[in-house]
Nucleic acid binder design. Structure first.
Lengths: 153, 153
DNA sequence: CATTACGTGTCAGTTTTCTGACACGGGTCA
DNA sequence: TGACCCGTGTCAGAAAACTGACACGTAATG
């Protein structure tokens, strides 16, 4: 189609490149998770719970970058399927700490391996130093983007 | 809440960090675009058209990382509002080359400035060399993630 | 002690985006 | 030429995510 890359500015924009990378990562994850009948959000929720048991709905939502309302419907599904458990009433306040069931943990195992392989593939051809650099740089971007937000709020 | 960062693995995962950065960027863009009553996808479409006039619906969709169906409904809105134009019938094939109207270009101007400021903020505290490094690294990630996809297809 | 602010879970409705499907034009190749 | 494949635009329906709103518990504030 447009064979000649006019590439005015898009190709030099780090923001666009960041979105591109994130999109490629998501697509790759969807591809390996599809055979397991699991979406990325699905997986994120389970992985979060595996690494930090007892997280609340709202905390899971923040960790998976969705609203708590969205996470809530997901949790209802996962609970119905027997992958997670939530107490019927809150031990303290309104917070309902969520935990993986053995079944949920089992379901997560293959998914974790699949996603891990994607991340390994993503890092292929990068030296340890480059990975450390990428880490620093992304952290710096996140920090810079958020500090103004905090100033406003 | 969970004040102690157990941080088993999430905090060491470049994939998660990438998603985090992308999410922060999107949030920052939404914030500066909201006063202009423009969404990120909205802006992406106009910016793409400004830099590469005559792009088709499908090409715009790929450039904005949405499906062509989603881009189509967006283009219908933009066309109704008089920000873009599409020929009533295709000059060649079925492709309908889209172009910005003067009005669309005017609307884009402020948005571009706003988004540019976000990108500048994101890059604050990074040296030229670091930015170049970030560029290389992100490009490498995208390439690595996509090459297996191509192998499958 | 009263009040305020904040975070949470949840209900309802809406918007956005996606998946699936179809017909069409153009290029490729035997 | 005719068969095939690919990319495109578009219609329709479904799924996912969001915004807005409310009541409730906790902690901080006066």
């Amino acid at each position: 189609m447009s064979q000649d890359d006019v590439g005015v500015d898009l190709e030099t924009s780090l923001g666009y490149l960041l979105k591109e990378a994130s999109s490629a990562l998501r697509a790759a994850m969807e591809e390996v998770l599809r055979p397991l009948e699991m979406s990325v959000t699905h997986y994120s929720c389970l992985e979060l719970l595996a690494q930090r048991p007892g997280l609340s709905n709202s905390e899971l939502a923040r960790g998976a970058f969705v609203t708590r309302q969205s996470m809530n419907v997901l949790l209802q599904t996962l609970e119905r399927e027997g992958h997670v458990t939530r107490p019927t009433e809150a031990p303290v306040g309104k917070v309902l700490p969520t935990r993986l069931t053995p079944r949920g943990r089992r379901r997560l195992e293959k998914a974790t391996a699949a996603v891990r392989s994607v991340e390994v593939r993503m890092l292929a051809g990068m030296t340890e130093a480059e990975q450390a650099g990428a880490f620093r740089i992304l952290r710096s971007m996140i920090h810079s983007l958020r500090e103004d937000n905090d100033r406003i709020r």
